[in-house]
Amino acid sequence: MVLSGPARWVLRILAIAVLTFVYAPLALVLLNSFNASATFAWPPSGFTLDWWSAAAGNEGVRSAVLLSVEVALLATAIAVVLGTLASLALVRYEFFGRDVVSLLVLLPIALPGIVTGIALNTLFTQALGGLTFVTLVVGHATFCIVLVVNNASARLRRTNATLEEASTDLGATPWTTWRLVTFPALRGALVAGALLAFALSFDEIIVTTFTAGPGLQTLPLWILQNLFRPNQSPIVNVAAVGLVVISVLPVYLAYRLSGDSATATTK
């Protein structure tokens, strides 16, 4: 069963059709951010940059972007520290229950977001006294750890553990070995993992809904809240484009840095 000429053409056309299905809706959102019609009448009645300047001047959008960046940075910082340490343990050591730990790291993004969200919500509201900024960061850090672990582990598996042993044999302390041998090899993968974690945190909405303290609005929450207000729709649309750009850009950088296609697939 070798693929015949016509079969190859059919496959090519179907592939193009599926990729069009994937990109057309996003292209429409981008085009609409320049659509002169406030109700997105189609075809566009004209080109305008008004919505972009209106969004840039919108107080709600600005504070939402700021909060999203703050949360993403803090969650990423926590995830990088915990994830790096865990990946060293998972790759460089044999121990009982290693598979269970790997599964536990993966679980927060493998289970439906609503389960993760409501579980955290139960803990915070019933046992720890309510939702705040901190609970939001904690929620995000929890599902970001896996991205750092995956990236760091992949790199550690490809770097030779004997380099670290050599360093130890030459009398380096564990800290010196980390500083001069392990960390330089790991740096690119850690930056890549951090960028992915940032991107994931920045556009997350479900766990956010269940863990954000009262009055806290991340950019996705702001969009969701304003989605049903017709007079806000052009600004919502611009915010949507911004959200895509701010979350895809770090992923592109991460992809360039880590240099292997496996990293970007585990979201």
Partner: peptide
């Protein structure tokens, strides 16, 4: 890359895109 990139475009924006696409006067 073409297949994987949309995973990173915000979930909410993708649903929103379909809301716009499927709108009665869309």
């Amino acid at each position: 890359a073409l297949v994987v990139t949309p995973l990173w475009a915000s979930y909410l924006v993708k649903v929103y895109a379909w809301r716009i696409l499927l709108a009665p006067e869309g």
